[in-house]
Amino acid sequence: MKEEIIIAGFGGQGVLSMGKILAYSGVMQGQEVTWMPSYGPEMRGGTANVTVVLSDNRISSPILHAFDTAIILNQQSMDKFEPLVKPGGLLLYDPNGITRHPEREDINIYKIEAAEEAAQLKSAKTFNMIVLGAFLKIKPVVEMENVLKGLKKSLPERHHHLIPMNEKAIQRGVEIVKEVTVVKA
């Protein structure tokens, strides 16, 4: 198993921490992992992306030009990363704020209305966990049990009371993710 993932959106959406939780989940499952952020002067409001690789074997490059999965959370990222999904790969996106929807016909496309759901849950910060749940429903590359361990590991102890809320958000993501187009294998 080797899964190369790019998660891209605005700073402040929890892009980097979502990648971190996914990476820690992989560690909990005994996988090799790399987590490589785009770091920059931009913070909240700027663009942010992170490349996460999960693999059963030693990982060579943590920097990639093609991805098994792109998780896309704003329009700039859609423009940049839709072309970089490998044929037959996965594009998961939140349509909120997207003006040009994905157009490729050789990849699997799913959408997750995470921003809307987070608003309904009255907890904007769980947005990224809803997206993570959606991804894990489509590609269960790590077991849910290990995701919860990863969540615990990556959150500082003073935030551990927020774990049940995040767990619920992951579960909502699993439930509400929608298929847009699926290519025949």
């Binding site: 090799e32 790399t34 952020p37 990982i59 943590p62």
Partner: peptide, 10 residues
């Protein structure tokens, strides 16, 4: 370099 410094691994 910035890549090895910023990257997370086991």
């Amino acid at each position: 370099d910035g890549m090895i410094g910023q990257m997370m691994e086991k």
